[in-house]
Design a protein around this nucleic acid. Sequence first.
DNA 1: TCCTTATTAGTAATGATTACTATTACTAAT
DNA 2: ATTAGTAATAGTAATCATTACTAATAAGGA
Lengths: 152, 152
Amino acid sequence: MDSKTKTRMTYQRQVILEELAKVTSHPTAYDLHKMVNKRLPKISLGTVYRNLELLSESNEIQRLDVSGHQRRFDANAKDHHHIRCIHCSRVDDLPIDTTSVLEDIVFRTSEYTVLGHKIEFYGICPECKVKEQKHQEKDDISKDKNKSKTRR
Amino acid sequence: MDSKTKTRMTYQRQVILEELAKVTSHPTAYDLHKMVNKRLPKISLGTVYRNLELLSESNEIQRLDVSGHQRRFDANAKDHHHIRCIHCSRVDDLPIDTTSVLEDIVFRTSEYTVLGHKIEFYGICPECKVKEQKHQEKDDISKDKNKSKTRR
DNA sequence: TCCTTATTAGTAATGATTACTATTACTAAT
DNA sequence: ATTAGTAATAGTAATCATTACTAATAAGGA
């Protein structure tokens, strides 16, 4: 179902992408709506949200779910880290690599005064892994009566 | 003004703290309200939110602003990292130290399948540092007519 | 016991995001 | 080009977490 739907490059989506690419400021959907609005006075906030979502799903842009703050977007789709000001919430890029010693590196690469950092890992918990396996088995049985090895 | 207000240890606050300490599940304010509700049937959700906020400000508990997800709370006030399941949103502790090689370590210490991680640093941006300095100078002038060295 | 005021319960408001719906406009096949 | 099918849109309503407001209550020191 998902694999059959084809996305169309609409003018709205084009403009959203262009406007996002123009800035390095990591705008929110609302910010971007204001920016795009100058070229497309009738575009709705919902359209901006939906397109940003689609674009980030197809990895053309990056979605920044900033802890405890409003979501932001980044035309740079390459994985990289960010730093946020606790006063004005401005978010800047950090061209560092994750495997190096952390705050020390930031101290050398950023003009921020680093107060701390948070790391959030994501993955699949043991319980969900079991569930996933069970579903997988069911699918295998219903889709194919032959025995099949459990995919990993 | 803030420094003059004295907080009172209310029964509600006591119970919230106790119930949070009982679990290791990182409940949301809503979860905690349900838990506390069994002992205090009249407590309101707002009270739970306010007390969790106060308790985390005084570092008696920890507030977890999980990126793009609902806020959670942790009776363990010591700084430590977490891992979240992308399916069920369950959050578990990660007893690792930040300075070590990241996902590799997680792989060894957690039963999760690690799919990735995000790091968010926080601090003060160059512009705000300048503003801070200016405010500081004003304060110094108004509070004290003698010259005073800029505090760092 | 009395007073001051922090705190509460209950409820309304806010603000970000998502959902809904009738209409519009791509795109491919006729 | 015309039509049919269906993404996508504008506009708006709904949702959901969190915060703000207010009159009543209750800590806790004098």
